[in-house]
Computed example of a mutant assay.
Amino acid sequence: MSSASLVEEVRELAARLGAHEALVRVARELFEELANPFEGCRRVLCVQPHPDDCEYGAGATLADLADEGVEITYLTLTDGSRGTLDPGVEPRQLTEVRRREQERAARIIGVKRLVWLDYPDGELSYSAEVRRRILGVVRGERPDVVIAPDPWLMYEAHPDHRLGGLLTLEAVMFSPLPLFDRGSPPHSVKVVMLYYTARPNYIRPVDRTFERKLEALKAHESQFASTWQTFKLYLEVIAAAYGGQVGSRYAEAFRVIPAVLLHASALSQLV
């Protein structure tokens, strides 16, 4: 479609449906990755504030991708050293336990590479230094798709989740720009996908791998052993709701944003 034709299409749609709906429809024509963000994907970087978040937010999807031969790397931002209700556990001990649990869970999903930044749990700072380290991993791993928690989830109280998601998006935005951190070669990410989102625009059926997600999460015994049946039911209810929407038994939901829309574009909110 020519530029002139696209402009006329938008004008005609806006006259009938309003500007918002016109831009939504045209954006979906322009960005085919909204319908299939993993088309041609060879590498995925999944960023998690703590051990277990990648499995919790996207485990069945990641297992599906691993089975298809996609290379998946986990980037864990904090050490998970305070994620317990047991006052008798020492932070250093919990860090070691959670690292072992994450290694087991990753093997179940099919993830072979784990990168750790080891910031103290609950103390991830909004800083250029943290963003620079995430940027270094993005450029080093060179993923087609980056998956991270939605930093704009309303009522999310954990700062590691809010700041981890935001810093990841900033790192993806800066990654193609060679004058940001000259110590690593630029890399352009095609798509970012946000888990823990209340505004999904991509729902992926995961009937085949949902049980594997549960198995991987069960490996995080320090987090879920005492409440497993309740937590499992919660996961099943959420996945069943999204699955029902797309005609499957279970599904996972994400907010997909083409990386080129991460700066100065209202389309990132409209797509």
Rank of each mutant, 00 (worst) to 15 (best):
E103W: 09
E252D: 02
V26H: 08
I238Y: 01
A106E: 06
L13Y: 12
R99D: 06
I147Y: 07
A60L: 11
G69M: 05
V191H: 09
R42K: 11
A128R: 14
S127D: 05
E96Y: 12
D121G: 02
P258E: 13
L75C: 10
R28C: 06
R162M: 11
P91C: 12
Q269K: 12
Q102R: 12
A22N: 14
R11F: 14
A106W: 13
T76I: 12
R131Y: 01
A15N: 12
D86V: 03
A63V: 06
P176H: 09
K232I: 02
R92Y: 10
V111N: 04
V97Y: 13
Q245I: 13
E236P: 01
R42E: 13
H187E: 06
Q245V: 10
A241V: 11
T230Q: 09
R162I: 11
V172M: 06
R255F: 08
M154V: 15
V7K: 15
A15P: 04
V10A: 06
L94E: 06
T95P: 05
C41E: 05
E21L: 10
D181P: 04
W152D: 14
L62R: 06
A198E: 13
A198Q: 14
S265D: 08
R142K: 13
D53Q: 00
P37Y: 01
V191F: 12
A4E: 09
A259W: 01
D86K: 07
A19P: 08
L169A: 11
P185W: 05
I134L: 02
F224T: 11
F174Y: 12
E32Y: 13
L23G: 02
Y126S: 15
Y74T: 04
I72E: 04
V145R: 01
T197N: 01
T61A: 10
P200S: 10
L267G: 04
V271E: 00
A148S: 03
T84F: 05
G80N: 05
V237M: 00
R249P: 02
D67R: 13
V130R: 09
C41Y: 00
L194S: 02
L163I: 14
D64L: 15
N36H: 05
A27T: 13
E12L: 13
P87N: 08
R28N: 11
A58V: 02
G110N: 04
G57W: 06
G57I: 02
L62V: 06
R113I: 03
L77D: 10
R142P: 07
L166F: 10
L194K: 08
G88F: 10
S3R: 10
G69P: 02
T227A: 08
R113H: 01
E33K: 05
R16T: 08
A240H: 00
E236R: 00
I109R: 03
A241M: 15
S3W: 07
I147C: 02
V115C: 01
V192G: 10
T61E: 02
D160N: 09
Q229M: 08
R182Q: 00
A264K: 11
R208E: 14
L153T: 07
Y196F: 12
A198G: 09
I147N: 03
A219E: 14
